[in-house]
Amino acid sequence: MATQTGQAPDRVLVTGGSGFIGRAVVGAFRRRGMPVTVVDREPPVDEIDGVVYVKGDLNDAGVREAVVVPGTAGIVHLAARTSVLQSVEHPAETYADNVAVTQELLELARARGVSRFLLASTNAVVGDVGAATITEDLPPRPLTPYGATKAACEMLLSGYAGAYGMTTCALRFSNVYGPGMAHKDSFVARMMRAALSGYTVRVYGDGKQRRDLVHVDDVVAGMLSAWDSGYTGRAIIGSGISVSVLEMIEAVRRVTGRPLPAEHVPAPGGEMPAVVVDLSRSAETIGHRPSISLDEGLATTWRYFLDLENTR
């Protein structure tokens, strides 16, 4: 485990910084000239100048002590157990990784004068609202241990903001896609791999279920806006445009020029009919205004997958 000395006062700690979103966030802070510390269970894909990498598990008190140091400007907390299926199979481990770790990080931040804390949350905290529009004001009704742990984390942030004056913001991401997602098992990644290989992509049910797809660059821009705003509360990070699975497939066909055959299979239980988010509040509170269209975003993702294929 690495240790750190002489931290600059504007250093940002990014937990889970070796992951898909984390790498993009780290790059954005470095382009601002801010030094960054990354803590992750996984080693970095590519090391970046000005970034201190700590490989370790945040359940380990020694790892937390090493990375949450006095003089840190703030924490961007992306590390979590994010698999809904795994949360159902392993609820205790999901609680430990998500809720207990967040509590320990908040407490260290309070004790060491780190006043800013951004959390990667999810719209899953509100549960299944059918085709209704999701806003920040909907009451939390999570349907899985994963959603429940993120709701609990949001309450912890609220409590630390109220009791100690910390700036805490829970950012509820919709479906994030873009360059860097090769290892992901999301539908966009599966479509890209199918387009490369000529395989068939599997579609649950009739494919008319709708999702909000937001490009990783818009996510990072929204996180930086939240960081700059000093806003405490909840904010939705999405595209604000919901598209059906069938529309996603057509968009990938346009962008890739590949046939991308689809096979309809029975939908699993609990498949949500729609994810429709309202971004008007987050535009006001944190200045989140996504700008990347679906075709434009899928084109950048396709180029990324092609580049990976060509380097093998």
Score class of each variant (00 low, 15 high):
residue 2 A to K: 14
residue 5 T to Y: 13
residue 6 G to C: 07
residue 14 V to H: 05
residue 20 F to V: 07
residue 20 F to D: 02
residue 20 F to E: 03
residue 39 V to A: 13
residue 39 V to F: 10
residue 43 P to E: 10
residue 43 P to D: 11
residue 47 E to T: 12
residue 49 D to G: 13
residue 52 V to Q: 12
residue 56 G to D: 11
residue 62 G to E: 12
residue 63 V to Y: 05
residue 67 V to C: 08
residue 68 V to K: 05
residue 69 V to Q: 14
residue 72 T to C: 14
residue 75 I to M: 03
residue 78 L to V: 10
residue 81 R to V: 04
residue 84 V to N: 10
residue 84 V to I: 15
residue 86 Q to W: 12
residue 88 V to P: 00
residue 90 H to T: 14
residue 94 T to F: 05
residue 97 D to Y: 08
residue 97 D to Q: 14
residue 101 V to Y: 01
residue 101 V to E: 08
residue 102 T to L: 10
residue 103 Q to R: 12
residue 104 E to V: 02
residue 109 A to T: 08
residue 111 A to E: 15
residue 113 G to Y: 11
residue 115 S to E: 11
residue 118 L to E: 05
residue 119 L to C: 04
residue 120 A to V: 01
residue 123 N to R: 00
residue 124 A to W: 06
residue 131 A to Y: 03
residue 132 A to F: 01
residue 138 L to V: 12
residue 140 P to T: 14
residue 141 R to V: 12
residue 143 L to M: 13
residue 143 L to D: 13
residue 149 T to N: 06
residue 149 T to I: 12
residue 149 T to S: 15
residue 150 K to F: 01
residue 158 S to Q: 14
residue 169 C to F: 06
residue 171 L to W: 00
residue 172 R to Y: 05
residue 173 F to W: 10
residue 183 H to G: 14
residue 183 H to Q: 14
residue 184 K to S: 14
residue 186 S to Q: 11
residue 187 F to N: 01
residue 188 V to L: 09
residue 189 A to Y: 03
residue 190 R to D: 12
residue 190 R to W: 07
residue 196 L to I: 09
residue 198 G to C: 07
residue 199 Y to W: 10
residue 201 V to Q: 05
residue 202 R to C: 00
residue 202 R to A: 13
residue 203 V to H: 01
residue 209 Q to R: 09
residue 215 H to N: 02
residue 217 D to V: 03
residue 234 R to K: 11
residue 238 G to A: 09
residue 240 G to Y: 01
residue 241 I to D: 07
residue 244 S to Y: 08
residue 246 L to N: 15
residue 247 E to I: 00
residue 247 E to H: 07
residue 248 M to W: 02
residue 249 I to Q: 08
residue 252 V to D: 02
residue 254 R to V: 10
residue 256 T to G: 06
residue 261 P to E: 11
residue 262 A to W: 03
residue 263 E to Q: 13
residue 264 H to C: 12
residue 266 P to L: 04
residue 271 E to V: 11
residue 275 V to Y: 04
residue 276 V to I: 15
residue 279 L to R: 03
residue 286 I to D: 02
residue 286 I to S: 00
residue 287 G to S: 00
residue 288 H to M: 10
residue 288 H to S: 07
residue 290 P to L: 06
residue 290 P to D: 04
residue 290 P to H: 04
residue 302 W to F: 07
residue 304 Y to E: 06
residue 305 F to V: 02
residue 309 E to A: 15
